[in-house]
Design a protein around this nucleic acid. Structure first.
Lengths: 128, 128
DNA sequence: TAAAATCGGTTCGGTTGCGTAACGAAAGGC
DNA sequence: GCCTTTCGTTACGCAACCGAACCGATTTTA
């Protein structure tokens, strides 16, 4: 079911959830790392380094490093593909699911709080 | 007006908007930089280094460096406060407003596309 | 089976970001 | 006038990340 957000609400939602995440003491994931994690958990498997690299337009080494980091956090696991042993499949973990579940709650809470308290005025920057 | 998102929709929304932003050729802003930018543009002024530091729980030097980066991108401008010349006020710019406006459009588009195509199953990671 | 292609990882030099600590400038207290 | 406090920035050493190039392992092609 689609959800319709105007610009003010979209930015307010994003700000509130992102700020909550930044303020918190959870790990500091970059936008790339987060987009990889979300892709792995919300898109149908299998997920490979090459597939993630192409779908997110991120270089392979960057994907590999991001998986190192996500793996070290316990949010993701690598597994060699038995049918093509060159390939690696990225798998989900309970810890990663819990992390994303909590993050989803922050987004939901931000959506619940939407009230257009401080409108975004695209035309009122200083004078530069 | 509040918006109610379940976990699947919240993560799908976030993934789609974030991935679009990562894929694009726009600047690579960290979560901190983005949260600062959003705070400056959606919260009532004035915005000071100290204020941002406290409200986002980020060290003052980190705020200062993020403002360097955002300023060099033209998304934000510093201005000395005439009443307290120690203080710096962070001001919005047209370029920053345009950037956030486009980003808001990506979020809105992600919300419009919500259809629960690939449900998030918190309990189906491998076996780790 | 030999050669080419594919996959993921590592190495390399360079860039960016971090927190602690110290700094100069400005304001406030006395 | 001083001494202290406050504000933002800079210096420093360190960790994380980047893309290009290269590598070994594996699969595919011929």
């Amino acid at each position: 079911m689609p959800i319709y957000l105007n610009q003010d609400d979209a930015l307010a939602l994003w700000r509130e959830a992102l700020s909550a995440s930044v303020r918190g003491d959870g790990p500091d994931l970059s936008a790339r790392q987060m987009s990889i994690l979300l892709t792995v958990y919300t898109q149908p498997p299998p997920h490979t380094v090459r597939g993630l690299s192409e779908s997110l337009n991120i270089s392979k080494p960057a994907i590999s490093r991001a998986l190192d980091r996500l793996g070290q956090l316990g949010y993701v696991r690598r597994r060699r593909d038995d049918y093509d042993r060159r390939s690696v499949q990225v798998q989900r973990t309970v810890k990663g699911a819990v992390f994303l579940s909590e993050f989803a709650d922050q987004i939901s809470a931000a959506g619940r709080d939407l009230d257009s308290p401080t409108p975004f005025e695209a035309g009122t920057p200083g004078d530069g």
